[in-house]
Amino acid sequence: MSRAVTLALALVLLALPALAQQRAIPLAELKSGSSFLGADLRSLQNDDFANPGTLWLERGEKLWSSPAGAKNQSCAGCHQDAKTSMLGVAARYPKVDAESGRLLDLEGRINLCRTRRMGAQPFKYESEELLAITAYVARQSRGMPLNVSIDGAARSHFDAGEKSYRLRRGQMNLSCAHCHEANWGKRLLSETISQGHPNGYPVYRMEWQTMGSLERRLRACLSGIRAEMLPYGSPEYLDLELYLAWRAQGLPMETPGVRR
C-alpha cells in the first residue's frame, strides 16, 4: 500500500471512536421527561399562561434589558433582541468557552458575560435572578433540538461525564444508569422512571414548588440515592450535564419545563 493510503487509513481509524460513540438509548427511542408526566402536568407545561415557569420568564425578560455593573451595560446592549440573538444558543450548551478553556453550562456562560463584559457581579447559584435569566435565554430555543459538541476540548469532559454517569454512589450504591438507562419506563412507587433528559431545564418542579436548575435536579437525585450532594458549581456536574445533553441529542428543548 502507498504511504498516502496508509496515512489516510490511519486517520480514519483514529476518528472512528468519536463517530462510533454508542448510545444506550437509540435516537428513535428518546423520550422527553414530559412524556412521563401525568396528563395534568403535561398540559400545564404546554399552557403558555398557567405554566408557573412563565413568571420567571417575565422576570428574565426584564433582567435582559436591565443595565448592571461597572460598564452599566445590559444583555440587550450587546445582544439586542433575545428572540433573534439567543435563538438556538441554549441547545448547544454545555460548551467549552474558547477564551478561558472552561466547560460552561448556560448559567456559567451568563455569569461569565456578567463578570467579563459587564463588570457586574455574577448571580448566585439558584438565585431568582439567575433562574429567571437562564430560563428566558433557554426559552428562545424552545422546540429546537439539543445539539452539543463533544469534539476537541469537550471530549475529556464528555468522557468524565460518562464515567460519572456510570459510577455507583451513595448508600443505595446506584449509578444514574441503573434507573435511567436500565429501568426507564418502569415504576418506582407510583412514579414512572424517566430517561433522565435535561431538555426542559430550568424547570418548575412541583416537589420544589419553584423553579430550579439542572444542577439542583442532579443534587436531588444524589440525595435520593443517599449520596453526598456535591456543592453547586462542581466540575463533576458540568461534565455530567455535557454527557446528559449529548445523550439527549435530538430532543427538542421544552424550557420552561414542568416536572413532578
Partner: peptide, 10 residues
C-alpha cells in the same frame, strides 16, 4: 396522593 418516589433534599 402519594409521596414522591425519591427523597429530595436539594
Amino acid at each position: 396522593v402519594t409521596l414522591s418516589a425519591c427523597l429530595d433534599e436539594s
